[in-house]
Simulated assay, not measured.
Amino acid sequence: MASITLGIIGFGEVGGIFGRGLRGKDGVEAVHAWDLKFAGAEGPRAQEAASADSIAPAGSMQSLCAQATLLISAVTASNTLAVAEEAARYLRPGTVFLDLNSASPGTKQRAAAAIESAGGHYVEAGVMTSVPPYGIKVPMLLGGAQAADLARTLNRWGMDAKAVSEKLGVASAIKMSRSIMIKGLEALVIEAYTNARAYGVEDHVLPTLQETFPQIDWSQQGAYFFSRVVQHGKRRAEEMRESANTVKEAGFNPFMASAIAEKQDWVAGLARAGVFEGLSGKSPWQDYADRLLAQRKADQA
Score class of each variant (00 low, 15 high):
Ser3Trp: 03
Thr5Cys: 09
Leu6His: 11
Leu6Ser: 05
Gly10Thr: 09
Gly12Ile: 10
Glu13Met: 11
Gly21Leu: 04
Gly21Phe: 02
Arg23Val: 01
Arg23Pro: 03
Gly24Gln: 04
Asp26Lys: 14
Gly27Asp: 12
Gly27Lys: 01
Gly27Tyr: 02
Ala30His: 05
His32Gly: 00
Ala39Lys: 06
Glu42Gln: 15
Pro44Cys: 10
Arg45Thr: 05
Arg45His: 03
Ser51Arg: 15
Ser54Glu: 13
Ile55Lys: 05
Pro57Trp: 11
Ser60Arg: 03
Ile72Pro: 10
Ser73Gly: 10
Ser73Leu: 14
Ser73Val: 14
Ala74Ile: 08
Ala84His: 13
Ala87Val: 08
Asp99Ser: 08
Asn101Trp: 06
Lys108Gln: 04
Arg110Cys: 02
Ala111Met: 10
Ala113Leu: 01
Ala113Tyr: 00
His121Thr: 02
Glu124His: 02
Ala125Val: 05
Ser130Trp: 12
Tyr134Asp: 09
Ile136Lys: 11
Lys137Pro: 01
Pro139Asp: 08
Gln146Glu: 14
Leu150Val: 01
Ala151Gln: 08
Arg152Asn: 05
Arg156Trp: 04
Gly158Phe: 11
Gly158Lys: 07
Lys162Val: 14
Ala163Met: 06
Ser165Lys: 07
Lys167Gln: 15
Leu168Asp: 07
Val170Ala: 13
Ala171Asp: 06
Leu185Pro: 09
Leu188His: 05
Ala192Phe: 06
Thr194Ala: 08
Val201Asn: 02
Asp203Pro: 00
Asp203Ile: 08
Val205Thr: 04
Val205Glu: 09
Leu209Asp: 11
Gln210Asp: 13
Phe213Gly: 03
Ile216Leu: 09
Trp218Cys: 04
Gln221Gly: 05
Ala223Arg: 00
Tyr224Ile: 02
Phe226Gln: 10
Val230Glu: 14
His232Ala: 11
Lys234Gly: 15
Arg236Lys: 05
Ala237Lys: 06
Glu238Cys: 06
Arg241Tyr: 07
Thr246Trp: 12
Lys248Arg: 15
Glu249Asn: 02
Ala250Asp: 11
Phe252Leu: 12
Ala259Tyr: 02
Ala259Lys: 08
Ile260Asp: 07
Trp266Met: 14
Trp266Asn: 08
Gly269Phe: 00
Gly269Trp: 01
Ala273Glu: 09
Phe276Asn: 08
Phe276Tyr: 09
Lys282Asp: 13
Lys282Cys: 00
Ser283Trp: 05
Ser283Asn: 00
Asp287Asn: 02
Ala289Gly: 09
Ala289Trp: 04
Arg291Lys: 10
Leu292Asn: 02
Ala294Glu: 13
Asp299Phe: 12
Ala301Phe: 01
